[in-house]
Structure formats: structure tokens, C-alpha cells
Design a protein around this nucleic acid. Structure first.
Lengths: 256, 256
DNA sequence: CGTATCCTTGATGCCTCTCAAGACGGGTGG
DNA sequence: CCACCCGTCTTGAGAGGCATCAAGGATACG
């Protein structure tokens, strides 16, 4: 079997793509869940081979770079990954953080080359599903491409939210949105939604949110002053999810 | 036939999805091209029915709104459309402008409801391909879903560029990027790439680019002072594409 | 235990927003 | 055909949020 009973017990399983956690929650890695969702009768031996194709990246190592020929889709087992795009003059925009259980690199597969950079934020273990095997899977499992559309559709939704954040929100709203988003995704893995262990630096967060590193620090300090969160370096504890939610939506301060 | 010989002569046809103009350039409307690209042997009578499903929207009219059940994918024949998303507190972020020949509304089809608003910027004629018929097409034409993946992949690329623009670029870089992008897309239709007729207001542009309406005006004025462009209300003439390109990439002013 | 990296806080300045007022142009009705 | 009106565009003045520059402190790692 792909997942032991124990791991199945520990981790919430997304039953279908309509589950808000899909494709985040999974038993062993995202690709298993992806396949499971579309065809219970899938060739399990093939699947087994695919998900056994594991690899570990050290902090800072690149999973892939811009323009590199498409190699595989990645399902993160443990650790986390940062994706980014570049301007011609060398500026970098972080486009996303991907945590354990999530799929990555799907969106560039049609173009045959990667459209962004992916860098491990910490020691990260992934299942790499090679491109060619993926094609096999698509033939074997009729609904698979539809699932991929769904995942890409979710990604587009997220991008739209990011455009809104970058285009319209103020610093505090951005950081609150960021923390809540991470919290929600961690919760989908059965992890705590109020005690976050950030794997990225303040600088990375700032880059992602279109803010300077210093601004991120200042907002974090401000949140801590108001007891909305408690921090200790990269450990962040969310003490008031409701208030953070309000802030993220741009609802002005309402003292008591 | 779907397109008369005369119209075929007038307009450049994108031969495959690898054409940089795809899915922009098309003979009659995008959906025809989409189908043609994936299967020359497609059921033309079905296709014919689909593309005949035309409708015209007046300026300001909504093609669809957020949360509305998914109805159709839209191929714009003439005119232009603006898409936008909303914050909970009512702020609006324009996420894109769609011009004649482009496909729209593909990305929300998997979710069964629209994830954004679409509003006609001017009198706009579209082919509406109903959801159910689309499903038929998918069954008839094996490669169709792959093409959809490709289109969504392109959309994701564009979103990444927008995130970079909104997160890292300064006002002048944003506007230069915007003008050049529009120019490129118009060129794909055989229209002039240096004489643009904007269908959106300064306010719309500002919203899209994460700028205030006044800032857009000021930057336009500055560009005009430097003879990079000439404007007359919504008519914009690009006089120096190279310089605009340089500005859009953040290359600092280099006065001779 | 030294060093590099990351985090934090302060001071200063600038880019862009906001508020405001006027100009321009297109559309409409008399 | 003209005059009016309203939406859009433009420009100015002022304010403010955030970036930048700078320096010190904390933590992790070899």
C-alpha cells in the first residue's frame, strides 16, 4: 500500500477535489491523492512506482529554474519550497510558498519548460513524478486531466487574490492575509492553525507581499504589541484569528 | 464555413498553440481556433452551432458576476471586456482586459461558478459557448482539454508577470509594461502596434496597475513630455517602443 | 567561541495617494 | 445647431505610508 494505516490515521485525507483542502491534504503525497480522487481503479503498481521516486533537497537548493526543460511535477512530503520569477534587471518576485502535502510545478508542464524558480527553504523531501510517467497516467486515468484543470483553476484563484493583495491592500492587511492563509493550509494537514513555524525569512515574506523586510518586522512588532500574535523568531502564535481576519479584510481598527 | 475567405485574408491565423499569438489570433472567434488546433477532423456542424451562439453586450453590461453558476466560455469577436475581483470591504481589483479575439472565462469553468466579474468596456460582441456543449466537445475532441491546460498555463504566466509588476515595479515601469502588452496583443490581430485606441478609462488602468487614476495621468503626461508617446484622450501613439521596453524593464533613464 | 545570518528598531526621504479644482469633450435635449 | 451637463481627464498642493539607509542585537552554526 501507499500509505500505512498509521499515517492514514494521523493525517486528514481530502476525499474529493471539492474538499477545501484538496490538493493539500494527502496521505503520503499529493500525487497519490490526485490519482485516488479520479480513479480508485487506477493501476496501483504504476502509481507505486511513481510515488517512490523520491528525492531530498537541502536548504537553498533549486528544484528547478526558469527555462529549464520540464522534468517532473513535485509533491512535497516534508519541508517547504519557495517559487519566484525574475525581472530582466534582476529583481525577484516570490510568487508562492509551498508546504508539505502540496503539489508544485503543475502549471508549467504544458509549456515544456519551467516558468519560475523553485528553491527549498529547508531540508525538503519530495516525490518527483517524471513528465513521461505523467503522460502514462493521463492515458490510464481518464479524469486526470480534469483534476489538473481543477488544480490550475485553484492556482489562478490564488493568483487573483495575490493581485488584489499586491494592488490594493496595506502592509498590515497583507501580513494578516499571509498568516491566515498559511494557518489555513497547515490546518488542512492536521497541524496546528495557531502555532506556525515559518520556514522563510522576513525578507522572503516581504518579497512575497511586496514589502520591505523592515516593514514586515515593524508590522509583526505592531501585531505583537496589540497581542494579536506572539513571536519568537520564526515561531508565530496567532492569538486572535478573528481580529486578524478583520484586519486582512481591511476592516478598520475598532478598539473594543 | 465558419469564416469567409475575405475574413481569413484579413486576419492572421495562429496555426498552433505554440504560436505566440495563440489563442489571441483567430479567424472568426477563439473557440473556432481552439478546436481547429486540436482536431481538424472535429465535427464541424457541432462547432458551427457553437460559434453561432452570439450575443452583444452594451458598455457597462456584465457578462457574468462572482459566484454566478458557470454558464459559458466567451470568445470576444469585437469590443473589449474587463475582469475584476472584489475584497470583502468592497474594494475592486481589475485583473485583466480582454480584447477582440481572446478567450475568457475558461479558468472558472472547473469550479462551476465564476470567480470574477466581467464587464463590457464598450459595445462588445461575443460567441458564448455553453458549458454543456463544451463538455460534448471535450468528448468529441480528445486533445481539447490539453489545449485548455495550455491556455490556463498562459494565464498563470500572465498572472505571475502581474504579481511581479504589482509587487516590484514603479509607476512608470507599470504603465510602460501595460502599453507594450496591449500593443503586442493588438499586433497579433493584424492591428497597429503603435496606435492604440484604449477602451478603458484612466481610472480602470490605474486600478489594474495598482495606481491611482491621477498617477496614471501624470505618468502619461511625463511620457508625452519625453515624446515617448502622443495622446489624444484615449488614442495613444507609441513613438519609441525600444525606450518603453527599457523603461518597462526598469532600466534607468539614459539621456543619450 | 567566533562569525555569518537574520531580526529589530530608528531616522530620513520620497513616491504615490488623497483631496481639490478646473478643463475638456461627448452626448443630449431644446 | 447650439447650449448645457456630466463624465472623464488633467494638474496642483499637501500628507502619509512605506522604502531606504544605518546600526545594534539575537541566534544558529561551524
Amino acid at each position: 500500500m501507499l500509505a500505512t494505516t498509521s499515517s492514514l490515521k494521523r493525517i486528514k485525507i481530502a476525499k474529493s477535489v471539492d474538499d477545501p483542502c484538496f490538493p493539500i491534504a494527502c496521505s503520503d503525497c499529493g500525487i497519490y491523492n490526485l490519482c485516488k480522487a479520479v480513479g480508485g481503479e487506477a493501476d496501483l503498481s504504476l502509481l507505486n512506482t511513481l510515488v517512490k521516486n523520491r528525492r531530498t533537497y537541502k536548504r537553498g537548493e533549486h528544484l528547478f529554474s526558469v527555462g529549464e526543460p520540464y522534468r517532473a511535477v513535485f509533491a512535497i512530503r516534508t519541508g517547504s519550497v519557495e517559487t519566484s520569477v525574475l525581472t530582466d534587471d534582476g529583481r525577484v518576485q516570490v510568487t508562492g510558498f509551498h508546504i508539505a502535502g502540496e503539489l508544485m510545478g503543475l502549471n508549467s508542464f504544458v509549456a515544456n519548460r519551467y516558468n519560475c524558480e523553485a528553491r527549498a527553504l529547508e531540508t525538503t523531501s519530495v516525490c518527483e513524478v517524471p513528465f513521461e510517467r505523467y503522460e502514462e497516467l493521463v492515458k490510464t486515468i481518464p479524469g486526470l486531466q480534469h483534476q489538473m484543470l481543477k488544480i490550475m483553476s485553484m492556482e489562478i484563484n490564488h493568483h487573483q487574490e495575490m493581485m488584489l493583495l499586491l494592488g490594493k491592500k496595506r502592509a498590515e492587511e497583507r501580513l494578516a492575509s499571509f498568516l491566515l492563509n498559511l494557518s489555513r493550509r497547515l490546518k488542512c494537514h492536521g497541524q496546528s492553525d495557531s502555532e506556525l513555524k515559518l520556514s522563510m525569512s522576513r525578507s522572503d515574506i516581504g518579497n512575497y507581499l511586496g514589502l520591505a523586510e523592515e516593514t514586515v518586522c515593524r508590522v509583526i512588532s505592531r501585531f505583537e504589541e496589540e497581542s494579536l500574535i506572539s513571536t519568537q523568531r520564526r515561531i508565530v502564535r496567532l492569538n486572535n484569528l478573528d481580529r486578524l481576519q478583520a484586519i486582512s479584510k481591511g476592516i478598520p481598527a475598532n478598539p473594543k
